[in-house]
Design a protein around this nucleic acid. Structure first.
Lengths: 349, 349
DNA sequence: TCGCGGACGGTAAACGATTTCTGCGAATGG
DNA sequence: CCATTCGCAGAAATCGTTTACCGTCCGCGA
């Protein structure tokens, strides 16, 4: 605290320094540097530019933000930045928004309500122009109230909110459509001629698994295929869960294909089926969901529904850009696409 | 630009608002809110706190940073935030530094010099208190000059630089010691009784592979084990590279164990060895390097040297904390540790 | 009684930009 | 030929803080 001033051996170069060197007022320098619409004579402009260049002038964003009330920053809340899901998403965001001059604050809540609130408040203090909820909301009533107050205050001051997850906060949204994406997988199998498709559902207390399960039933019925209980099994979102569920389905339902609620389960299913003597894909096809890097190096490279994580971020940024420019863009809707590898074939005749 | 003022329907609540409500001067409010050492009567303090609470006052960090010349932010340059390596590292940094009130700007250079420079300049403009180079430096002479100028200017103004990678920038360092870590693996195998250890080297034009290769030779000689060319093969840092190299080594050198320069190669090696009829670990042991998530779900779960990515970030943050407090902390040195799984056993007698 | 120091609070000058106003000379137009 | 407009530049207010500097009041020791 004491040596605050002595910290800067060399003086910061400010507008004033440039102005002195160029022998003009700071106003003029500001106008040149910030490309203001206010006219500046060509000769003057040149002098200013030269001076700025010579001093290595970098306008101070903080000062600028203070007066314009725009910080050109975006605060992003993720659950865990070391999770590639969020990594990809943040990358998509960043790649797209940086060209507009926005910079990202990234914060991992670690699924801890207190921590998330701390970050939200920090973002407010740093006057971010937009708040991105890439992390889904947490179960905690007190937290919910706080978040709502904060967001309301934030928006009442012109802040933009973007939601990229299952969240109670209302704002612009990029939504990955689990429903349609599940249908894509079902249609893909149906088009190949499969009529008895098994389904490995996730734990029913998770929104995602409920959505995917429901969508599966609808898609199957829409195509006029069989939906019955012997073709469906539940399990945890893990390799182990996939193994058990797959065995259960094959023993009871005689499927020609199995769709799993995520890749881990699909991998477990493959393993179990292989071990039980079924050939993949000749005897039975397997389809996953997510497209983890793992899917590619699996014993039988896995055909799966890709969740377009990067694009969620990217589309979010595009939406953000427009919202920040004062438009009112429509929400975005994304559906997965099939990544064909080697775990699927047409059913045997 | 036009509607800048109309953006804020509700006025921002500032020190002034609180001061008015509490009927004191802004100076007093500031002193209360920022826990200044300047004395404030208890009764006054209470009034201020109550007013602040009632208005939901959040001090504006930007304004504060402007006058204190401390933004409480840190700029981090990574190659690619979607790469779990950097994700882990950033997480470690964040987890440790956030308690001190610092927030992170995270930027992916994408290994593009221009882009990295753009971010570096932005960090300067945002007056970050510290710069973290988590990404290794790029090969580009012009870029190098620019970076050096920037960093020099940054430091001359009191900024702290932290380097967590192979980089020409001088600054505080957390260094992962490839040398000692390789020795750890060799010692581990030697302790189990292995005398003929094969080594799969990476491409010789990468610093990391050169270090690991050299360290392997040194460690082996130190233990008085055999080092000869028939036990060493080179390959690309990939599954394919590992396969070929492993086959080459077994055919020529009769090793009882193989150490690979990274997990991907080790996985490839395992696959190839298995396919060639060797049993792992009964006939031959395999050790990797990195500890990717993949290592755990491999056909034979891989024993490997863990690179403590999270700790690199974490130790970096600790170092940063001290440097920011004005101390001059020593650099940190980290070595990998063996993660035992199932690909290693003692050699057969 | 006087002087001094500490507690407490306020005034005002920064920090580094943007932007509104004003001023002035030159061009334009009726 | 005078009034108006336009191009261009500067002065000064402003954003929301922190903090150096001053006053005041009070208690206490000499």
């Amino acid at each position: 605290m004491s040596n605050r001033r002595t910290l800067s051996a060399r003086e910061r170069v400010s507008l004033r320094a440039v102005a002195e060197l160029a022998e003009v007022s700071v106003a003029t320098v500001s106008r040149v540097m910030s490309r203001s619409s206010h006219p500046v004579a060509d000769e003057t402009r040149k002098r200013v530019l030269a001076a700025a260049e010579r001093l290595g002038f970098q306008p101070n964003q903080l000062a600028r933000a203070l007066v314009t009330a725009r910080s050109q920053t975006v605060g992003v809340i993720v659950h865990d930045i070391s999770d590639p899901y969020f990594g990809e998403l943040v990358k998509g965001l960043e790649d797209e928004i940086r060209a507009d001059g926005y910079r990202l604050f990234v914060a991992s809540s670690d699924r801890n309500p207190a921590r998330e609130l701390e970050y939200l408040r920090a973002f407010e203090a740093y006057q971010v122009d937009a708040l991105v909820f890439a992390a889904s909301s947490l179960e905690d009533p007190a937290y919910r109230d706080e978040v709502e107050t904060l967001v309301e205050r934030f928006e009442s001051r012109g802040g933009i909110t973007l939601v990229l997850s299952e969240h109670f906060v209302e704002g612009h949204k990029v939504h990955f459509d689990n429903r349609s994406s599940t249908a894509v997988a079902v249609d893909y199998l149906a088009d190949l001629g499969h009529r008895r498709i098994g389904f490995i559902a996730g734990p029913p207390d998770l929104t995602v698994s409920r959505h995917r399960h429901q969508a599966f039933q609808e898609a199957v019925e829409k195509r006029g295929l069989t939906y019955d209980d012997s073709l469906v099994a539940e399990g945890s979102f893990s390799i182990e869960g996939g193994k058990r569920a797959a065995l259960e389905i094959v023993s009871g339902g005689e499927p020609t294909a199995i769709l799993a609620s995520n890749d881990l389960m699909a991998l477990g299913a493959s393993r179990a089926l292989l071990d039980a003597g079924h050939r993949i894909p000749q005897d039975i096809s397997v389809v996953g969901f997510d497209d983890l890097p793992l899917a590619e190096v699996a014993p039988v490279p896995l055909t799966t529904v890709r969740v377009p994580t990067y694009d969620i971020g990217r589309e979010g940024a595009i939406l953000l850009r427009r919202a920040l420019a004062g438009e009112d863009p429509d929400d975005v809707h994304l559906v997965g696409e099939i990544v064909e590898r080697r775990s699927v074939a047409a059913p045997r005749a």
